[in-house]
Design a protein around this nucleic acid. Sequence first.
DNA 1: GTCAATGCAAAACATTTGCACACGC
DNA 2: GCGTGTGCAAATGTTTTGCATTGAC
Lengths: 150, 150
Amino acid sequence: MSCGEKLAEELRRKGFRVTPQRGVILETIAHMGDHLSVQEVYSEARERLPGLNIATIYRTLESLHRAGMVDLFYPGSGPTRFTLRDPSAAHGHLVCTECEHVVDIDTDLIGRLVEEVAAETSFFIDPHHLTLLGICDACFQAGRGKRKIS
Amino acid sequence: MSCGEKLAEELRRKGFRVTPQRGVILETIAHMGDHLSVQEVYSEARERLPGLNIATIYRTLESLHRAGMVDLFYPGSGPTRFTLRDPSAAHGHLVCTECEHVVDIDTDLIGRLVEEVAAETSFFIDPHHLTLLGICDACFQAGRGKRKIS
DNA sequence: GTCAATGCAAAACATTTGCACACGC
DNA sequence: GCGTGTGCAAATGTTTTGCATTGAC
């Protein structure tokens, strides 16, 4: 059974209907990997299913989100992006404001950050939505951006 | 000298022109406090200067940002918000995804988070853009949202 | 058969831009 | 007077919505 089929089954198990559109969307997401935008999935999935409408991507994504199968995150600029959720692990993103590159954050580090903030503020960071903006090492080495509080 | 006038002078000192529009915008920001959206400033400032155009707010905001006088942040949903920068202190926001409420993060805590991430990933979080999404204590007590990794 | 999902088109919303004119410095 | 800043209107890009139809269960 392919990754896409497993996801389809999970979606059905959670009470959502599995249509050909959703099948193709899941298949596409499974093949494309993380940090996807709606447009990216749309372009790719429409090749497999030409009549597919972009509103369907948005609505499917909302269903997947309600089903707890994808996490959304908001890079500082540009459209919302999303990632298939691994239920067993926290997941976060470092977004470089210079090169737009997205890097995943280590699960353990997320756990520590969540605890640290919770201990001090009684605010519980969503470990599936953790997105941090800043400067990546490559951009810093290249002299773009700065690493001091100005 | 009012807060707005001080800000106008700072802006002029940094090489930007101070127009009546910018004066009113600065005055308005100084009175309205933190976590403002463009629309909020626009509504308020237009009462003091009726012809004011919303594009001017956007452009002024960009100038203020280039001048290092305001910081932008991106709550999980809704428009970009901004805050006057206090040059002496880091500044971050906790945004509750249930009630949309925004709380400031303590300067020391930000410093520790920045260091912790930097040590482990060689990625430098921008301490002026730090925004964390999650569940606030009030919403958790009220039974909205959850505090476990699902 | 019922109700959720889809396609289509239009609307909503935030933000940006081109251009002619105004005005701070 | 030079060049930045402004108003206006239009364009852009993302996301949402109403509505009739389709199709999964």
